[in-house]
Design a protein around this nucleic acid. Sequence first.
DNA 1: TTGAAAGCGCTAACAG
DNA 2: CTGTTAGCGCTTTCAA
Lengths: 340, 340
Amino acid sequence: MTTLDDVARHVGVTSATVSNVITGKGSVSESTRRRVLAAVEELGYQPNLVARSLAQKKTLTLALIVPTIANPFYAEIAEEIEHTAWRHGYQLILCNTFRDRSRGQERLKALSRRWIDGLLMMGGSLSVVDLLAATRFGQRRLPMVLCIPCEEELATGLSMVDLDYWYAGELAAQHLVSLGHHRLAIIVEYPGHAPRLEGFRAALAASGIDLPPDSIQYGDSTMQSGYQATRTLLSLPTPPTALFATNDLMALGAMEAALDEGLTLPDDLSVVGLDDIMIGAHMHPPLTTIATPKHELAKQAVELLLRHIDDAESPSLSLTVRPHLIVRQTTAPQQKEADG
Amino acid sequence: MTTLDDVARHVGVTSATVSNVITGKGSVSESTRRRVLAAVEELGYQPNLVARSLAQKKTLTLALIVPTIANPFYAEIAEEIEHTAWRHGYQLILCNTFRDRSRGQERLKALSRRWIDGLLMMGGSLSVVDLLAATRFGQRRLPMVLCIPCEEELATGLSMVDLDYWYAGELAAQHLVSLGHHRLAIIVEYPGHAPRLEGFRAALAASGIDLPPDSIQYGDSTMQSGYQATRTLLSLPTPPTALFATNDLMALGAMEAALDEGLTLPDDLSVVGLDDIMIGAHMHPPLTTIATPKHELAKQAVELLLRHIDDAESPSLSLTVRPHLIVRQTTAPQQKEADG
DNA sequence: TTGAAAGCGCTAACAG
DNA sequence: CTGTTAGCGCTTTCAA
């Protein structure tokens, strides 16, 4: 384990000089510069990041907090975030909270001791109280951006990158309405996904279609809940001919339930999801969904965070990314019905 | 940002004493101990991990290298690993290599500068050369364990935690044979999944069943490749009645292909996967698979790594975890056939 | 252009 | 039981 001093001694200069050539700061004569570089090579010197971090109060480390990386949606975003972070020279510490408050707090506390440069938080990972506490680590301010905040996180005043979920709901409704459906249902995580519901409802209203209470079912973003909600919907006196699940996992659960009921997709029931997780495209039939542009989302989030890191005075910003509809094969025109 | 010295000054002792009460080392009188603790509380003191790391040469940080966290199998394991690591007080840096050598090398180099305490590597993330180079960071030895090594990584002599894949192949074959199938096929990533193939082949041989070259198709562990391979298999003069895909993603691709061909699952074709990714249980029909006990795998891997960290002399170990069959609904008894 | 010196915040010997 | 001292490996003034 060679240190700066080793290199310096080997060349016959001082460690400050070696530091200068390595960081590219200060000015060094071309000749010593070359000798230093040669020595670095020869001794296989690697700068020690922890020493540097201590001296500069900068760790080149970001943390990403997610509810659970086992959810493919978060995993796919995490991959993009990791990628973007590394491109900017930052490493990523991964934290799962399992949506558990005490766990989240622990994680945060541990992070605060290690002087991460910034924090990226997926919405719903932490309680809002903990979240706000997190913005101040000791006395110093922790740069942080919220990625896809949930309802109650919107008022925190933090920087955030969100998807235009209201628009997503609108897209889903418009697509379904354009196919001639008028008995629609929604499976929604509430209140987390409220804007999706509202966008959906508003677009329906604009087409003169009502969304009765019965046709709004609640889930918790898992397949299981999508499955259950769909069983309930299908057992209604007049079951829906089309449904929108506010995330893909619930949509997959819905498909499963419909198939278990012996229905044919999409003829007997149209299903629209939201997220565009990889696997959705490979279901049978492939899932029609409102896609989250994950690469863009990650890019915006990381770059916004870096802006906060580089400039502590940089004001809080709210960015919004627009989703788009991907029509695959779980949606079809409304069939003729017996009872108009 | 209060430091040890601040606390010390506030109490009227020396920073060494404060350090002692915080780390629990050395001996401190009960009275000063209480005063220190009070001051810590009052000032909201948080120990600075980077300073501590520098002093102790220990960072309480592990890194996990995976090919891609977007693959649910890795994501689910990553979650278990993160969980286990945190329970032991370690944080986790996540690295995706995208199976790209240069990217893997970069990651490794960056990690080497930050003095991580240990490295967990999913098999196939890195070239073997880089992998071996990674064991020595500068002159110091980097504790490391390989998780589910691939063929060419077995000879590295590193500690590893593997699944008994030969046995997994055997389980798949036995299950299918017990259902009366004798025209079997396999979709395998080669040579990465060679033991799975060999176990499968051996178990078939034991039942007097041959596995002709045609019925061995190659994939790269993606759904797409499973899909393609299955199309090929189904277009054979005598297509198989059952197939084993050496990972779940390929099995899902196989299901998709079969359904696209108009086949009914499992009556027209039995499919067995391997991994037990979450989503497999929710397909229609739910996927029969050979399950990886991910929790145990993660636990073994992390704990083995910690053993290496705590004791540099701890010898390399190879642990093996046994998979088990989960029968769901993609496998069924062989149907009667027209042509014996 | 280079060197000397101080310091980042903490731990670890060793004295007292 | 507590204080003193000396680092950990690097950066950063400030002089020379």
